[in-house]
Design a protein around this nucleic acid. Structure first.
Lengths: 139, 139
DNA sequence: ACTTGACCTAGAGTTAACTATAAGGATTAA
DNA sequence: TTAATCCTTATAGTTAACTCTAGGTCAAGT
């Protein structure tokens, strides 16, 4: 007798649209979601948790087709524990390098903030014309 | 008499393809690149630096059409310093929240690494069946 | 002079991930 | 019972960012 949720309730909760959830279902990402006799999807709390994991993988840049492999492994049970473990280890490395990249991006952005702040104060970009090493105290 | 680079040299340097660079040019991202009499592009060192800034903006998720606005402002000179400053301030906020998101993602990934490591050791996922608060020492 | 290889443009094709439409079925409220 | 508001499917359309093809030009080497 556990509570269930409609597709639009789940969409709202996860900041997605019902279209998107149906699309994920069509792509095989939600084989676990049960239905009523008349085909209406009934989402359990655990289904929402699984969708959060899917969103997590998506946010690492993993394409939907690869996420499906993971979902298939989940359906296959304990015999795929090794693959799933390795997948998350690999994801961890991916996210680590993404964090590194994003931090580099941040440094350049901060530099540009400083560049335009000082140019704005001077009224012209020309003050940066022949400088090579003007290190601002970052931040 | 400064050194110039061909499109394929620049592509190699920036880990892009010549196709992509021509596409960027077509979209108006490279109005500064000079040409020979026979229309061949001649990239200067400063053009490559500008392209690195474009790549930086791209890596924050900014769409090419918005990047074009920035390039247009650059062409317009000092009268657009304010807009450009504000754009980078806004980008900084964007990257900050992206970093936050990515760190949350990392936490979930690490949790899953632990989840599967322990499941693998036990030979079955069942060991996680009725646990709610098994906090592993993260990392 | 001729071939090779890198360059050029215009325009067509591709891909992923949605996003929307059309036509219909079920549940609730008056 | 009828209207509203969900839900369903199949299928078509959209968008961004490439990615490629065709047909041509140009400069260097043999």
């Amino acid at each position: 007798m556990l509570k269930t949720y409609s597709i639009s309730e789940v969409a709202k909760e996860l900041n997605l649209t019902a279209y998107t959830l149906r699309y994920y279902d069509k792509e095989g990402l939600m084989p676990f979601v049960e239905r009523t006799a008349s085909r209406t999807r009934l989402f359990k709390e655990s289904d929402i948790e699984a969708l959060k994991v899917i969103e997590c993988l998506k946010s690492t840049g993993m394409p939907i087709k690869e996420i499906k492999h993971f979902i298939d492994w989940c359906s296959d049970g304990d015999s795929t524990l090794q693959q799933r473990y390795e997948m998350f280890i690999e994801r961890k490395a991916t996210v680590e390098s993404q964090l590194e990249e994003l931090n580099k991006t941040m440094e350049l952005i901060k530099h540009k903030c400083w560049y335009y702040k000082t140019a704005l104060e001077a009224g012209t970009e020309d003050i940066h014309k022949n400088e090579k090493i003007e290190i601002p105290t970052t931040n």
